[in-house]
Write a protein that binds this DNA or RNA. Structure first.
Lengths: 110, 110
DNA sequence: AATTTATGTCGTATGTTTGCAACATTAAAC
DNA sequence: GTTTAATGTTGCAAACATACGACATAAATT
């Protein structure tokens, strides 16, 4: 684009937007749900369960990891991924606060 | 991209991802906060308050309107926008349910 | 030490988002 | 009826996201 204006918003707005961006692809929602169910899982198992290639899964995992939503530990050849419950809780609280603040019983004429 | 795989995820995953996409830009977060505060507002007033042009605001409003998050009523030359509290509440519930389901007290070795 | 297995990174193609100026439309004010 | 004001739409350019094959790496197995 001609000009990136994103940095001109406040930090809370940028933070909320960036978490939303992480959650804005169905594959990443699906990965979170899969990790919630299985608790611990490796990349190849994830791509077996999803309609996307191993490479693409790997990239989505990277995005989730950079956001601090998942963690991975190396176990020989395999890497076990799991959810970071503290981070997830923080995101939940942030969105709850934002949306609760926006919602009121005001009824406009729209 | 070579192939769009998005439609192969389930409807709930696609719905959550699409709401997140709407919230994934700081300008749209800011517009929601502004509408929450002022209750009712017109486009030119919004662009006065934000670091982006009127045209760009208009496009963000279109995205919010398509998502059902805001409503607008024509009042002569002016258009009054306001939040759809029912829709916002629905989004809040959806994210709360999704994140609550993902969060558990399980602690893996990661 | 060669092979297999699990994973990550790079390069590339394609699609989507963002931002805005220029133009279009329509109602109000003069 | 011409001008002004408020808004939306179109078209374009730059940036970013998505998807994956090909290659790289490194541990486990043979």
């Amino acid at each position: 684009m001609t000009n990136n204006k994103t940095e001109q918003f406040n930090n809370k707005q940028k933070e909320l937007a960036s978490y939303a961006k992480v959650l804005s692809h169905p594959a990443r929602i699906a990965i979170i749900q899969l990790l919630a169910e299985k608790k611990e899982i490796k990349t190849c198992t994830i791509s077996d369960d999803l309609p996307i290639s191993r490479t693409t899964v790997s990239q989505h995992l990277k995005i989730l990891k950079n956001a601090g939503i998942i963690q991975g530990t190396i176990d020989g050849l395999k890497i076990h991924y799991c959810l970071d419950m503290i981070k997830l809780n923080e995101i939940k609280e942030n969105y709850n606060n934002f949306l609760t603040a926006a919602i009121s019983d005001y009824m406009c004429k729209c």
